[in-house]
Nucleic acid binder design. Structure first.
Lengths: 91, 91
DNA sequence: TGTTATTAGGGTAATTCGGGAA
DNA sequence: AATGTCCGAATTACCCTAATAA
């Protein structure tokens, strides 16, 4: 069972999170986000995981006077089920 | 165990790693990945080796302090901090 | 036999890595 | 504790033409 999702470059992930690519690298080094290394040492990130991190925590927020113990999480498969096959077309 | 002797083209390997086919060729030229040459000079790569390089790290999942045990961890079999450089010695 | 897509090869920009310091 | 920036070095991406694969 292969994960079968596209891989994103550090720059792509950084653009999605509006942070510096270096910060994404630190996340990967700290284990906060999974990463795959190319034989050359560069990192690639799974789009499914990135999207899960992007939209997973954005469900509820702006809770000021509420108790911080209630952390609504997204309970569900992070992978919408992307098949393998169609080329990225990113050129 | 299946050996998986299926051969992949540079374009296939490049799509798996999200890199340029030329980069895969560079890996083969540098000895970072095994390659089979066709009589015409084109390269073919063994799927088993490619898959092993993709996520064959198979290492532990780094878990740091957890708050309320509320963290739907997506499947992220990755290696945060690990040595990557293959002992090729090719400089 | 001919057509089309992919690959090899070289060369030059862009990105990323790693560490360190603000 | 976390992020952004600087630096040098390494890796990768895109440009081209010719040859190979299917």
């Amino acid at each position: 069972m292969d994960t079968g999702d596209r891989l994103l470059t550090p720059g792509e992930v950084a653009a999605l999170f509006r942070v510096d690519p270096k910060t994404v690298t630190r996340w990967a080094a700290a284990g906060r986000i999974g990463s795959i290394r190319t034989p050359g040492g560069h990192r690639r990130f799974r789009e499914s995981e990135v999207r899960a991190l992007l939209e997973g925590e954005g469900v509820v927020e702006e809770m000021r006077e509420d108790d911080a113990a209630s952390r609504p999480r997204n309970s569900g498969p992070t992978n919408p089920g992307s098949s393998y096959g169609p080329p990225n077309g990113l050129r």
